[in-house]
Design a protein around this nucleic acid. Structure first.
Lengths: 177, 177
DNA sequence: CTGTCATTTCCGTATTCACAGAACTTGCTT
DNA sequence: AAGCAAGTTCTGTGAATACGGAAATGACAG
């Protein structure tokens, strides 16, 4: 994988750009792309050579990816160096990322919103309207996270079934469409 | 709203941080927070004064927010200046943002992935495994976007019903849990 | 114990991005 | 038609972040 094919390059560059759009460092995302499409575990040097970035950069970015839980350190027989491979299943990979983002970002946000609502209710300076809007936001996150909590444990493939069952679901819930 | 209450400040700052985590400029997110919790439409100067940022910055950020479709220009009787207000309904607001992100980021990604898969299938340099993984990614996005296409048109409140109907849904889809 | 290889940490530089202020444009008012 | 107010665009500066290279640490073999 030292030399990338045109297709591999295209994908890795695009994935890097996607990363930046979602608050993920470009090279972290590129590294993830590379490891994800690699048929075999890669060591740090291979990664650095392939993407033309410094070893130190690779080291830090690998730690980041492992922090997200989507890349794991593995060992290759007869090679003392650390190797890295990606979580293989796409569905599980996104589930892991979403779980992590929920933990890091959504949960603290809901907590803060609840605090704000409580405080706003007491103080005199905060407008009634503001309090209402913050409450709506908090409720929104509560519902969506509860809902995510349900579907996250569906087996892979259930979502496809769900899409196909569209009408039935609507009837079951008694909603228009 | 020229002077912010402690609660308002806390929320606006947090929302700004959240923005950066999701690839949105901090002050753009702060401005959105401010406009969202404001009981009345705000003009550019008020926003600049309240958040202590330059008018030019406000002008650009407002354009950005309008580009996302979650802030609109409105007029106030007896005032020639432009005023701005946020989309009021939280659910619709997030629907709009998700639609936009799908259009800007997901759709082009799927298109690129399909290109990559097709090209990889022809060329000799790209590993079979890589092709397989890219296909899985593309399929993943196809299913999730189709699924989003369904629930995005559910009326507000349907998601709550959905959460409560958890078991029934699972049975209907014939999946374990 | 010593030397080698792999990895991580540290630090200064470089690149990128955000932003303020000025210049410019538009449109209204008289 | 000149002046003013509001809004936008442009440009240089500053801050934040990313990154490369050097130094340090750790792991192992002889």
């Amino acid at each position: 994988m030292a030399k990338l094919s045109s297709v591999q390059q295209k994908f890795i560059l695009h994935w890097g750009e996607m990363g930046t759009r979602w608050g993920i460092n470009r090279t972290v995302a590129q590294m993830h792309a590379l490891i994800f499409i690699s048929p075999k575990p890669l060591n740090a040097e291979e990664i650095a050579d392939t993407l033309v970035v410094a070893r130190s950069n690779v080291s830090n970015s690998l730690k980041e990816l492992q922090g997200w839980g989507i890349v794991k350190r593995v060992h290759v027989l007869g090679d003392s160096r650390d190797h890295f491979e990606s979580m293989k299943d796409v569905w599980e990979m996104f589930r892991v990322v979403l779980d992590e983002r929920k933990k890091r970002e959504i949960d603290p946000t809901v907590a803060l919103l609840r605090d704000c609502v409580a405080e706003a209710h007491k103080d005199k300076e905060t407008d009634e309207y503001t309090e209402q809007k913050l409450k709506e936001l908090a409720d929104f996150f509560d519902v969506t996270t509860a809902w995510y909590g349900q579907i996250r444990q569906w087996p892979t493939g259930a979502l496809t079934k769900f899409v196909k069952a569209g009408d039935k679901i609507r009837k079951l819930l008694g909603i228009g469409g």
